[in-house]
Simulated assay, not measured.
Amino acid sequence: MKTFTAGLVGLSLSLGALAAGPALAQDAHAEHAAALSAEDTPIADIAASAEGKAALDKNLPGLTDHEAYEQFKGMSLKQVQPMSQGAITDEQLKALQADLDQLNK
């Protein structure tokens, strides 16, 4: 498994082009307040609860401690994935979603 420190090196540079991300994340938050989703929910919203943060830490260790976390926390994991240089895999997102589904019940 790649580490987020190495895998998200280019993320900080890529985030400049996504300045609208936080505004879009607010809209997504309003629409998905009830159900947490690896695809749609902003990362910060998942990490806001102890259970959500535990699911993130389990499936994507180091994500919430990443030096660029403040820059990408308003984005969903599906938005961050292409910029992660392979550090966030489809398998990790599926495993995270399974854990989030348990929380959503």
Results as ranks from 00 to 15, higher is better:
residue 1 M to S: 08
residue 1 M to K: 04
residue 2 K to W: 13
residue 2 K to Q: 06
residue 2 K to C: 02
residue 2 K to N: 12
residue 2 K to A: 06
residue 3 T to P: 05
residue 4 F to S: 00
residue 5 T to L: 01
residue 5 T to Y: 09
residue 6 A to D: 11
residue 6 A to T: 11
residue 6 A to I: 06
residue 8 L to P: 04
residue 8 L to V: 00
residue 9 V to C: 01
residue 9 V to S: 06
residue 10 G to E: 13
residue 11 L to H: 05
residue 11 L to R: 04
residue 12 S to L: 07
residue 13 L to T: 09
residue 13 L to N: 10
residue 14 S to N: 07
residue 15 L to E: 11
residue 19 A to E: 10
residue 20 A to W: 14
residue 21 G to A: 14
residue 22 P to K: 00
residue 23 A to V: 03
residue 23 A to C: 01
residue 23 A to P: 01
residue 24 L to P: 03
residue 24 L to A: 01
residue 26 Q to V: 10
residue 26 Q to M: 05
residue 26 Q to N: 00
residue 27 D to P: 08
residue 27 D to Y: 13
residue 28 A to M: 06
residue 28 A to P: 00
residue 28 A to S: 06
residue 29 H to N: 03
residue 30 A to Y: 08
residue 32 H to Q: 05
residue 34 A to I: 14
residue 35 A to D: 02
residue 35 A to R: 12
residue 36 L to I: 03
residue 36 L to Y: 13
residue 37 S to Q: 03
residue 38 A to L: 01
residue 38 A to S: 12
residue 39 E to K: 11
residue 39 E to V: 02
residue 39 E to P: 05
residue 40 D to L: 15
residue 40 D to Y: 15
residue 42 P to M: 02
residue 42 P to T: 02
residue 43 I to P: 02
residue 47 A to R: 01
residue 48 A to S: 14
residue 48 A to I: 06
residue 50 A to C: 13
residue 50 A to L: 15
residue 51 E to W: 10
residue 52 G to I: 11
residue 54 A to H: 07
residue 54 A to R: 12
residue 55 A to K: 11
residue 57 D to K: 15
residue 58 K to L: 10
residue 58 K to M: 04
residue 58 K to S: 11
residue 59 N to C: 08
residue 60 L to V: 00
residue 60 L to Q: 05
residue 61 P to L: 01
residue 62 G to K: 06
residue 62 G to V: 03
residue 63 L to F: 06
residue 64 T to H: 04
residue 65 D to Y: 12
residue 66 H to D: 11
residue 66 H to I: 06
residue 69 Y to I: 06
residue 71 Q to C: 06
residue 72 F to V: 05
residue 72 F to W: 10
residue 72 F to N: 04
residue 73 K to M: 07
residue 73 K to V: 07
residue 73 K to Y: 03
residue 74 G to H: 14
residue 74 G to K: 05
residue 75 M to W: 15
residue 75 M to D: 04
residue 76 S to P: 10
residue 76 S to A: 08
residue 76 S to D: 03
residue 76 S to T: 01
residue 77 L to K: 00
residue 78 K to A: 11
residue 78 K to P: 01
residue 78 K to G: 00
residue 79 Q to M: 10
residue 80 V to E: 04
residue 81 Q to N: 11
residue 83 M to D: 09
residue 84 S to V: 05
residue 85 Q to H: 13
residue 86 G to A: 02
residue 86 G to W: 11
residue 87 A to S: 04
residue 88 I to G: 01
residue 88 I to S: 00
residue 89 T to S: 15
residue 90 D to Y: 05
residue 91 E to Q: 14
residue 95 A to P: 13
residue 96 L to E: 10
residue 98 A to K: 15
residue 98 A to F: 09
residue 98 A to S: 15
residue 98 A to H: 13
residue 98 A to M: 06
residue 99 D to W: 14
residue 101 D to E: 14
residue 105 K to N: 09
residue 105 K to L: 08
residue 105 K to S: 09
